[in-house]
Design a binder for these strands. Structure first.
Length: 280
DNA sequence: TGCCAGGAGTTAG
DNA sequence: CTAACTCATGGC
């Protein structure tokens, strides 16, 4: 299957390598990844997104996945009134927030707890290889992200053998609740930001930061403002003269300052801080 | 070797 | 309510 979509204001490298998704591989000239049940290769040139997939994905789903319906210049005008964000925009122009599969995103960020991105990628790749379905396109082979029911049935020891550590119990417990339909992520999506966050935080392994990442990267809740140690330090230094603030206070401040697209501001601020202050 | 990595749950005060 | 401790492992 091939698709061509108009895609202005898109930088694939910034978008796919900024840490919001963990399964995209740079093949040099294009990126290979998995969306739903399809292996997908994407490239961007002349304002168009070129997509080749192993199975039908649908033009609408692709537009949605890459966030192409969002008016990025308008978002920039809004959050770019802040001079720091404005500088970050200049550096990372074209970084878009994706709209990923909700269960995959939730599971991925449960695994992200207290570890680094290379290891998160390894855990997700192992889970997919072990419990997903093989998909191929040309020479590329990959695996779909496993259903919640598949993880729910998995042996804890098998999950730990993939390097999940203490996260194995968290993800199995949450997978079980989703498989048993105790919680329905589509219904969570119908709730407002506050209510949706409350629902997600009730799951094992999901705290405020993980919930905000999931809401931002797969629920289109753009007011979500994930606060990790980098963002917390950055907010304190930039806006509180170095005074210590709680993560909740930092997020409240950000929503007031940046408005309904605070989550976009968070992404740009995060990468700006990592770039300016080293280690990234 | 030592130290850190985009945290969350539990327990203690 | 906040603070301290634990959880496991790859990468440098």
């Amino acid at each position: 299957m091939k698709y061509i979509l108009p895609a202005r204001d898109l930088n694939l490298e910034h978008t796919l390598e900024c840490g919001q998704a963990f399964r995209w591989e740079d093949l040099g000239g294009c990126y290979s990844g998995v969306i739903g049940g399809a292996l997908v290769k994407v490239s961007h040139s002349c304002g168009k997104l070129l997509v080749e997939s192993s199975a039908p994905v649908g033009k609408e789903r692709l537009e949605d996945y890459f966030g192409l319906n969002e008016d990025l210049p308008s978002i920039y005008r809004h959050i770019g009134k802040d001079p720091v964000i404005n500088k970050a925009i200049k550096k990372f122009r074209g970084l878009r927030i994706l709209n990923q599969d909700r269960w995959e995103c939730l599971a991925s960020f449960i695994l992200s707890s207290y570890t680094n991105i290379p290891r998160i990628k390894k855990m997700i790749a192992g889970l997919s290889r072990g419990f997903g379905r093989r998909v191929a396109l040309g020479d590329s082979v990959n695996y779909t992200f496993p259903e919640a029911s598949g993880i729910a049935k998995a042996d804890i020891r098998a999950l730990k053998a993939l390097g999940l550590g203490f996260r194995a119990e968290y993800i199995k417990e949450t997978a079980s609740r989703i498989a048993a339909k105790e919680i329905d992520l589509d219904e969570v999506g119908d709730l407002n930001y506050e209510q949706a966050k409350k629902a997600l935080v009730s799951l094992k392994g999901v705290g405020g930061k993980v919930a905000d990442c999931v809401l931002l990267f797969s629920f289109k809740k753009y007011e979500a403002f994930p606060v990790d140690v980098w963002i917390k330090r950055g907010i304190e230094d930039l806006y509180f003269r170095g005074k210590t603030v709680s993560p909740e206070e930092a997020a409240r401040f950000a929503r007031r300052r940046f408005g309904p697209y605070a989550g976009y501001a968070q992404e740009y601020l995060y990468h700006y801080l990592r770039h300016e202050r080293g280690r990234g």
